[in-house]
Design a protein around this nucleic acid. Sequence first.
DNA 1: TCGTAAGGTTACCGCCAGATAACCACATAA
DNA 2: TTATGTGGTTATCTGGCGGTAACCTTACGA
Lengths: 120, 120
Amino acid sequence: MGDLREEIREKIENKQFNCEKELTLSIISGKWKIVIIYQLGIDGPLRFNAIQRLFPRISHKVLSNQLRELEEDGIVNRQVYHEVVPIQVEYSLTPLGETLLPIVLMMYDWGKKRMEDLKV
Amino acid sequence: MGDLREEIREKIENKQFNCEKELTLSIISGKWKIVIIYQLGIDGPLRFNAIQRLFPRISHKVLSNQLRELEEDGIVNRQVYHEVVPIQVEYSLTPLGETLLPIVLMMYDWGKKRMEDLKV
DNA sequence: TCGTAAGGTTACCGCCAGATAACCACATAA
DNA sequence: TTATGTGGTTATCTGGCGGTAACCTTACGA
């Protein structure tokens, strides 16, 4: 069970999930995670500051946090380019992360349709 | 915009969502919402205590809360049977709620598969 | 040598979801 | 008259997420 946050691993071991769905939810829950997954899925690899420019309202610390958690859960890949100066870090979806994309896309479509219905 | 919680309505009006996906996420976020949606989708209408029996760890208050929020968001239908004694209340998915089911099912499948992969 | 850009970490603080537990009304059965 | 089963509400408390802001290292350019 390497590719999971401590927190989630504990929940699994202590059987604190009532259902497997909650594993999924706990991985994508987080104020910015699904938008990050979506952007990485659509735009491909993005650098830290590129993501921040896309979502100006996300704070530095929180973005850093969300990305680390996604990385720990095996959803996002973190590629560091030491040779470049200043150092560059590129984030992309792992193969596992890409399997999450259809869910995020469905959530996008659902939310979009619902939003339209509400505005009529 | 009747079928939405005050809280969510405000977020829409003040454009605090960065993307429509977040509307979806904010509707299904909540420790027990997706399992409730799932059970109502699979088992059909369920009474308050029936749900509680399915998930003994959910507290009375929280279940009541989650159901009310789902109702306010137009996902769950609340049917009261006054003629029966003691009073009976039946919860079921609304048509809108059923459109959410595919997403929940995908989350279920994803979580299940991920869980299996982890246990190998 | 000061500013700026890269990508972080750390400290502190406030708020709210969820946990816990007690309370309500109503009616039936023991 | 007490207990049990409906389906709730209310009060209080706490952990943790996210917000804000400061700090760090490396290196280029003015």
